[in-house]
């Protein structure tokens, strides 16, 4: 496999379970123990009810394309070879919105409202949640 030049995330303490889950092929997110709202990104307080109580739960992995753009600017050298590429916000069935890319489909065929499912792109020490049409 050729060298991966795009930015590759590293876990921090607050997000470790998310990245551990991703390596196991699971979409693991914080869920408020008081009001039940799922959240993203990871943070100590629920942005709905400000509770500090939460659990990490596995989301279904299903979602809908909320909106997307097709990027032509070459902001970062690692992305240049793939330009134009899609930047997509997937609204998970549990509510949170995830910045990602839709894979397995040409950019022209992506539609707002399209049903998608998570598919992890695995690297040596991290896995990235991408989404495929279902």
């Amino acid at each position: 496999m050729s060298e991966y030049l795009k930015p590759l995330p590293e876990a921090d303490a607050a997000s470790q379970p998310f990245w551990d889950g991703a390596m196991e092929g699971r979409l693991v997110l914080m869920k408020c123990s008081d009001c039940g709202q799922w959240r993203l990104p990871s943070r100590a307080h629920c942005d709905n009810c400000l509770s500090e109580s939460f659990t990490w739960e596995t989301a279904s992995g299903g979602g809908t394309v909320r909106t997307f753009g097709v990027m032509w600017q070459k902001y970062q050298p690692g992305w240049a070879a793939e330009t134009p590429y899609n930047v997509t916000i997937v609204e998970l069935d549990e509510g949170p919105r995830l910045p990602t890319n839709v894979i397995g489909i040409s950019n022209e065929n992506i539609r707002v409202g399209m049903r998608v499912k998570v598919d992890f792109e695995k690297h040596e020490d991290v896995a990235l949640p991408k989404f495929r049409p279902v």
Binding site: P7, F68, M71, Q73
Partner: peptide
């Protein structure tokens, strides 16, 4: 944007989401 951005906000550069142009296009 570093090569190894940290935390959950790293999902933005890892998806090629850059600049102010992106959210307005979305």
């Amino acid at each position: 944007s570093p090569q190894r951005p940290r935390g959950m906000s790293a999902l933005f550069p890892a998806s090629g989401y850059y600049g102010a142009n992106t959210p307005y296009a979305l």
